[in-house]
Write a protein that binds this DNA or RNA. Structure first.
Length: 490
RNA sequence: GGUCCCAUCGUCUAACGGUUAGGACGUUGCCCUUUCAAGGCGAAAAUUCGGGUUCGAUUCCCGAUGGGAUCACCA
């Protein structure tokens, strides 16, 4: 069985790059009827941020990516875990890491290191000054057994370091990058267990991925260069290695690694800005992957069917907001008025109470603009003219091929005709039919009637069509607005 | 600087030795049209540079250049 995992550290909010990583992990699991696991990598107490776990979970849920196992929820101020390989918070697995560090020590794959931070800083400084290769200098690599015992019994603080072989080459096939090889002599003796008893990432991932039966390690490119350490650990333990896939990075416009300084990087930012999950998912999935043909629109389910890691690009992709906007507009148009109405509610905030509208009427109002805006956040303002006719200049009522006199004449005639009891258009099609017939009967051109009508109803240079607006406004309000227009013109 | 990875229009990308180098976003022209949006039809726009291999290189090899990642008791 295939299993993948997404392993965020609770240091902030969900990054869009992490969203893509999580998405790809999820897709691989789903398309193979495997499981998608969520593990929290909170081994750095200093960096843990309160509220980060629920924030990440919420963002994933919003996107439609929910874990099958591991940390699956957050209730009553605590994580909800599911599965037989728990706990799924690394901070609760300290004993496990200690046991495994001991195994490594026994096997000679790791060693005690008593170097002080000060000494390490000096080493680093010297290396920098002399332009030497950086890394641990191996000071404690071959310590005398008695010295180790003495230090240990004297409670000298220590770490456990990986005893990386000095010769040979570590080679592996990355599902995305292909064959990659590193000379072992350049791989550092990484700290595995810290002085405080917490593991570093390197020990914790390998131990957990094995214990949790992860078959595919899918993660960001930044991990590629530490993979040899992980491979060596698998070999030391005698464990079967997972498949590795290192995803290309998401980039800023200037091709540097996507960062906060150059725009929004948190999924939450995009939710707040009114983007749809379908749009963000589709967009982010296509940053580095495509189906190999011209199709651009993919739902989560369709992605699960067609996605493959082998088709993922090797190079980084610029996070291009214009394309995201296009996707968002597209998906907004695909939704029904009712669906958009429901999604847009939070963007109205308290104002929604003042509107005192029935939900169907509200959906109709939203329908006026849902195909014209790019995000949900723009909708309240876009639709404002329905509730409050904006003040506008009389000049705006005059069509480019018309005159003030003609505008007055037509608007008056239209108003008088509408005022008769027999004219009671109910919906958009009805309005179009009745007014259309009237225009034909009067032998007017469309523009000379429709332009001033539309401006009278919307108070705007650009707006939805007059029939749509009239249907939403209703006959009484249409008459009122025609009256306002005529007063302005006279 | 050491190590490793990468390189097609402005951006996301297709091409698995032979194509007028294709699509999408964006830009832009026209059409539709009461405005806007949407839609339709067009346009401009790319193989980083050298060497090989080959009858033939975007594609394979080598080098240069450029970009990126990583070199923590952070992940």
């Amino acid at each position: 069985m295939i299993s993948t995992r997404f392993a965020p550290s609770p240091t902030g909010f969900l990054h869009v790059g992490s969203l893509r990583t999580a998405l790809y992990c999820y897709l691989i699991a789903k398309q193979n009827s495997g499981k998608f696991l969520l593990r929290v990598e909170d081994t750095d107490q200093k960096r843990s941020v309160e509220g980060a776990i629920p924030a990440v979970l919420d963002a994933l849920k919003w996107a439609g990516i929910e874990p099958d196992e591991g940390v699956v929820g957050f209730e009553n101020n605590d994580v909800v875990e599911k599965g037989d390989c728990g706990p799924y918070l690394q901070s609760k697995r300290l004993k496990i890491y200690e046991q495994h560090a001991n195994i490594l020590l026994e096997k000679g794959c790791a060693y005690y290191c008593f170097c002080t931070p000060e000494r390490l800083a000096q080493v680093r400084e010297r290396q920098e000054k002399n332009h030497e290769a950086s890394g641990y200098d191996g000071h404690c690599r071959e310590l005398d057994i008695n010295e180790i015992k003495n230090n240990l019994s004297a409670n000298v603080p220590y770490v456990v370091r990986l005893k990386m072989p000095k010769t040979g080459v570590t080679e592996f096939t990355d599902l995305i990058k292909g064959k990659v090889s590193f000379k072992n002599e350049f791989v550092d003796d990484q700290v595995l267990l810290k002085t405080d008893g917490f593991p570093t990432y390197h020990l914790a991932v390998v131990v957990d991925d094995h214990l949790m039966a992860i078959t595919h390690v899918i993660r960001g490119d930044e991990w590629l260069s530490s993979t040899p350490k992980h491979i060596y650990l698998y070999e030391c333990f005698g464990w079967e290695k997972p498949v590795f896939a290192h995803l290309p990075l998401l980039l800023n416009a200037d091709k540097s690694k996507l960062s906060k300084r150059q725009g929004d990087v948190a999924v939450g930012d995009y939710i707040k800005k009114g983007y749809l999950p379908e749009a963000l998912i589709n967009f982010v999935a296509f940053l580095g992957w495509n189906p190999g043909d011209d199709r651009e629109i993919f739902s989560l389910a369709e992605l699960a069917k067609e996605f493959s890691l082998e088709k993922v690009n090797k190079s980084g992709a610029v996070f291009n907001l214009e394309k995201l906007d296009w996707y968002n507009k597209y998906y907004l148009r695909q939704l029904s008025n009712e669906q958009v109405a429901e999604l847009v509610l939070p963007f109205f905030g308290d104002k929604i109470k003042d509107l005192r509208l029935k939900i169907e009427d509200f959906a109709n109002v939203i329908g006026l603009e849902k195909g014209r805006v790019t995000t949900l956040a723009e909708l309240p303002e876009a639709v404002g003219f329905v509730f409050n006719l904006p003040d506008y200049l009389a000049d705006m009522l005059i069509w480019k091929k018309s005159s003030p006199e003609e505008a007055i004449k037509i608007l008056s005639e239209l108003k008088d005709w509408l005022n008769t009891k027999s004219v009671q258009p109910k919906n958009k099609i009805d309005w179009e039919k009745r007014v259309g017939e009237w225009i034909v009967q009067k032998s007017y051109s469309n523009g000379v009637v429709l332009w001033p009508l539309r401006v009278a109803l919307s108070g705007q240079e650009k707006s939805p069509g007059p029939y749509e607006i009239a249907a939403v406004l209703g006959k009484d309000e249409v008459l009122k607005r025609l009256e306002v227009a005529l007063i302005k013109l006279k």
